[in-house]
């Protein structure tokens, strides 16, 4: 069963909200929203997000590699769309992946 993109996106939003309980972001969050520039993440929040995603799906993901590659190509943000792309690429067909 393929991973559903809108489901992956919805799960990501749930994880983000749980990660930052005190979080207030006034704008609409869409695929071009950046976690550092728009959502005011610090590096450690991105690391914690990776752990939270792994916990949610109960599988190990190359999230550290993903962050480092973004850094090495001189990116200055990671968007929600890129995070969903990452999930679509790496989530295996596990019970947690589609629920």
């Amino acid at each position: 069963m393929a991973v559903d993109r809108s489901r992956a996106r919805q799960n990501l939003m749930t994880i983000l909200t749980e990660l930052r309980e005190d979080w207030e972001y006034p704008g609409e969050i869409n695929d071009s929203t950046g976690i550092f520039r728009d959502l005011q993440f610090e590096s450690i929040d991105a690391v914690a997000l990776g752990s939270a995603i792994e916990d949610h799906y109960n599988q190990s993901l190359p999230f550290a590699e993903f962050l480092m590659k973004a850094n090495e190509r001189k990116a200055t943000d990671i968007t929600i769309g890129e995070l969903v792309d990452f999930l679509m690429l790496h989530l295996r067909d596990a019970p947690g992946a589609t629920s």
Partner: peptide, 13 residues
């Protein structure tokens, strides 16, 4: 700093 320093430096990986 934070443990993210060890991500940015690739030391952890």
């Amino acid at each position: 700093s934070t443990l993210a320093f060890w991500y940015n430096t690739r030391v952890l990986a």
